[in-house]
Design a protein around this nucleic acid. Structure first.
Length: 876
DNA sequence: CCCAGCACGC
DNA sequence: GACGTACGTGCTGGGC
């Protein structure tokens, strides 16, 4: 069966251009449209395996349609030059693949495609049409299918006769009638004013075609509609004509000429290299004609029964495999080493008992390259093996190059760099309850591949970091930080289990009482923890007015319940039940579950390669959301205590670090002045926004100002601000505007940072952390606005993250060089927690804020407040 | 096992 | 006008 694919070249290039950020290669040539086009093409070649292929292009401005209607496409914006200049490269791409392309004077790509589709159908071929333009749907028959790009470009919606019927309830031929009635603003096809898609479909389902609708105009109900149809009769007929694809273009190629087959892989490969499409190289067939993605290339792994010098030269890529997320106290399944002498697998017992290996591990002059340094160091640490000299971490490098990548799994990273040698962990070990260790042969192969991948990717990745100006960020900040974090995780924080248990008992009793009260007041027994049941009881049985709905039913969230608080006394009990229930399940039971039996400590894990902004996150347990706002919850902190007698907990937090960063980046005079004089920033904001003296600032003004400052820091929208202040969206928007008028350079910054990000495709922090924001060029308002707010906010939040990370490294250094016994335990975004022996208390109270404030020099001072206590609760 | 709804922190 | 809106983690219920 002959399989012909017809691609609407201009349409796909256009889609690709807007779907991707404005990438360019190192010669300064824009490549996003070419790249997008290429990935789409590769996907078609891989998935569909067409026998024949053609890409049609529009030829110039004037077409036969302009003779019918001179305004045709009159409203269309000029093609951006950044896109036009990429079209020759798309042609070059097609030529190097030996793919036919075609354009014809006076005709559009649609017409060429329509003509060829009709010819091929007549010969009994199967035809697929690829475009971003819905007009093409009129070509669908039982032999011709149309694929329309959806989000991005490799996602496509598939239309056959059935799909069109399901979506529109009309046939493919009626698509032109649909356009005739509703028009098409992008092509400036007028249609009948006042008739949109809904009405047009209704009319067509009843009468069939534009002509029949117009002829039956008398029987159509609605005076207005009748008038419109009569008045615009000619226009409707012209619109239909414009929308009709012309299927008799004198295309002077034969179908057989479109055959797609062998092509010069070298040519395509050098084209990819020229444009910097290195990640696509591995999707080309190798010398034997195999596509590399389908098969892992071979690798030699030697299983060793005794560590020799050749295994542990410097540098060596090193894998210590620990299964699953939890690497504290976890067994090591095996080791792999890869270096200039080859790739080796070492069973765990052999390595840990080898003096040579242990010595090598702790020798910092012997450089190690790893994937996930922290996991490796911590896992070895629990085996009493010290690992020093970790020079390169592929995980962190990948995260810095692009934090948005959804999986920083080694297999994924390697594949993106064109190295298809590592299998998915899940494929090797299985997942969930079915997880298992494979036999030594398979295990050694898998680990060997990992080590080999790290070894061979290191140079490339390092070069990329260098190109992005991220070398210092990587080598001087994130790499040392991973070691510091590993030490903090290993140290853990001591927990007073009895304290937690006592609080748990109190809470549990109160919850039981509350449950009883609530059931009595509701006059029914139900599960209060089930939003579904709670909603039914409140809004159906008890008849309270529903405030908000969710996808699945009534919303029972706290802000909704608070609005109902006056209506029934049951509400306050439910709110309290929720609050205490949260404390009990997440913080009492949750924390007790993760206390390490042998040490009485909690060892959280920080994820250093996750957040889009550069912050850390904390899991198992999350120690970054221990309650503090409400006193009831804050008491949980009483359970966090020093691990040694007579020691203290010391907490130090940055004051307004994000707003100080904003003052620094924007260089706004008002904001800088506020921090140079160490003013209360929310009061100062109220003074500036409301134009009053300090003494005239009311608590309400301060509260609103605080909310705006909060919004600035977290990049919320006018909608978000309106929610938090319970005002209208318009009022919130005005308030934000007043804020920006008060701080003109902040306003400039907000504008400039978005503009620059649109050009570059990404935003950066002070220390060159990056976040790519492809959605800045989205045509979807919501996606675009979100990306714009992100562009404003990420440099602020990310720079704050840079600063505290730097402070952590500096503190760790000082503790070591000054031989202090104090330990750094936790990091909570803008706060550091230590445990401190009595004799270092005075010193540390000075040293910690001093180091934090000096971490990075800004053009406003940094400020850190410090406090100490017997528990985390008292250190406030 | 996965999703939705909710709630905690910065 | 665009209908969904800071970043995370973790709990429960409820469906498969």
């Amino acid at each position: 069966m002959k399989k012909l694919i017809l691609i609407d070249g201009n349409s796909i290039a256009y889609r690709a251009f807007f779907a991707l950020p404005l990438l360019s290669n190192d010669k300064g040539i824009y490549t996003n449209a070419v790249y997008g086009f290429t990935t789409m093409l590769l996907k078609i070649l891989e998935d569909d395996k067409p026998t024949h292929l053609l890409v049609a292009f529009d030829a110039g401005k004037s077409t036969f349609r302009h003779k019918t209607y001179s305004e045709y496409k009159g409203t269309r914006q000029k093609t951006p030059p950044e896109l036009s200049e990429q079209l020759p490269f798309i042609r070059e791409l097609l030529d190097s693949y030996g793919i036919k392309r075609y354009e014809a004077k006076e005709y559009e790509a649609d017409d060429i495609i329509g003509t060829l589709a009709a010819r091929a159908e007549q010969d009994g071929w199967q035809v697929k049409v690829i475009s971003g333009d819905k007009d093409l749907l009129q070509l669908v028959t039982d032999k011709v299918e149309v694929y329309l790009t959806r989000k991005g470009i490799t996602n496509m919606d598939h239309y056959d006769l059935k799909a069109i019927d399901e979506k529109y309830g009309i046939s493919a031929e009626q698509i032109i009638d649909l356009k005739g009635l509703m028009g098409d603003s992008s092509d400036n096809i007028p249609g009948v004013p006042g008739i949109g898609e809904k009405t047009a479909l209704k009319l067509l389902k009843e009468y069939g075609t534009v002509e029949k609708v117009l002829d039956s105009v008398d029987s159509i109900s609605g005076k207005k509609m009748k008038e419109r149809l009569i008045e615009n009769r000619e226009q409707a007929i012209i619109s239909k004509k414009l929308a009709t694809i012309f299927k008799e273009v004198p295309v002077d190629v034969k179908l057989e000429d479109l055959a797609f087959g062998d092509y010069d892989v070298q040519k395509v490969s050098s084209f990819f290299k020229d444009l910097d499409f290195t990640s696509l190289l591995n999707r080309l067939p190798d010398e034997e004609g195999n596509t590399q993605t389908e098969e892992l290339s071979k690798i030699d792994v030697t299983i060793v029964d005794e560590i020799q010098d050749e295994h542990i030269v410097s540098p060596t890529a090193f894998v210590a495999e620990v299964l699953g997320e939890h690497y504290h106290h976890a067994p090591i399944e095996g080791f792999a080493l890869s270096n200039e002498n080859g790739t080796f697998f070492v069973p765990t017992e052999i390595a840990v008992q080898s003096e040579r290996f242990v010595e090598w591990a702790k020798d910092e002059t012997k450089k190690k390259w790893v994937f996930d340094a922290k996991r490796t160091v911590v896992a070895l640490g629990w085996q009493d093996i010290v690992l020093e000299g970790v020079e390169f971490d592929l995980l962190i490098a990948s995260y810095l190059l692009d934090p948005s990548v959804s999986s920083h799994q080694m297999s994924e990273i390697a594949r993106r760099k064109g190295l298809s040698i590592v299998e998915e962990d899940e494929a090797v070990y299985g997942k969930g309850a079915k997880q298992r260790i494979p036999d030594e042969e398979q295990l050694s192969d898998h680990l060997g591949r990992k080590a080999a991948a790290v070894y061979s990717l290191k140079a490339d990745i390092e070069k990329e970091l260098e190109k992005n100006d991220q070398s210092s960020l990587f080598f001087e900040l994130e790499m040392p930080l991973s070691i510091v974090l590993g030490r903090m995780e290993t140290a853990g924080i001591k927990v007073d289990k009895q304290q937690l248990e006592q609080m748990g008992e109190d809470l549990s009793n109160r919850l039981k009482d509350l449950e009883k009260t609530i059931h009595e007041k509701a006059e029914t027994e139900f599960n209060i923890n089930s939003p579904k049941q709670l909603g039914e009881v409140l809004f159906e049985k008890m008849g309270l007015p529903p405030v908000k709905k969710t996808k699945t039913g009534y919303s029972t969230s706290a802000d909704v319940l608070e609005k109902l608080a006056g209506k029934h006394e049951i509400i306050e009990h439910i709110l309290l039940y929720r609050q205490l229930g949260k404390l009990y399940s997440t913080y009492i039971e949750g924390l007790l579950k993760v206390v390490e039996e042998s040490t009485g400590r909690i060892h959280t894990r920080y994820n250093q390669a996750l957040t889009q902004t550069g912050r850390l996150s904390s899991t198992d347990p999350n120690l970054q959301n221990i309650p503090i706002r409400l006193e009831e919850g804050r008491k949980i902190r009483k359970a966090f205590i020093p691990s040694e007698e007579k020691w203290s907990i010391l907490a130090a937090d940055y004051s307004q670090i994000e707003l100080r960063v904003l003052a620094h980046i924007s260089e706004d005079d008002g904001l800088m002045e506020a921090f140079k004089n160490d003013m209360d920033i929310h009061t100062k904001t109220a003074m500036d926004v409301f134009h009053v003296k300090e003494s005239e600032v009311t608590s309400n003004m301060r509260r609103s100002s605080k909310a705006v400052n909060f919004g600035i820091v977290y990049g919320i929208s006018d909608y978000g601000l309106s929610q938090s202040l319970d005002i209208t969206r318009k009022e919130a928007a005005e308030f934000i505007e007043r804020y920006l008028e008060s701080y003109p350079k902040v306003k400039d910054y907000m504008h400039d940072v978005v503009e620059k990000a649109r050009e570059d495709g990404y935003v950066s922090t002070l220390l060159q952390r990056r976040r790519y924001l492809p959605e800045l060029t989205s045509r979807n308002f919501n996606l675009r606005s979100f990306a714009e707010r992100t562009a404003m906010n990420t440099p602020i939040q990310g720079t704050a993250a840079d600063i505290i990370k730097k402070a952590m490294i500096d503190m760790a250094d000082r503790l070591e060089t000054e031989n202090l016994k104090s330990r750094m335990l936790l990091s909570v975004h803008d706060e550091l927690i230590f445990e401190v022996p009595e004799d270092e208390l005075d010193l540390m109270q000075k040293l910690v804020p001093e180091v934090m404030e000096a971490a990075i020099e800004l053009n406003v001072p940094l400020k850190a407040d410090v406090s100490v206590g017997e528990t985390w609760y008292e250190a406030k």
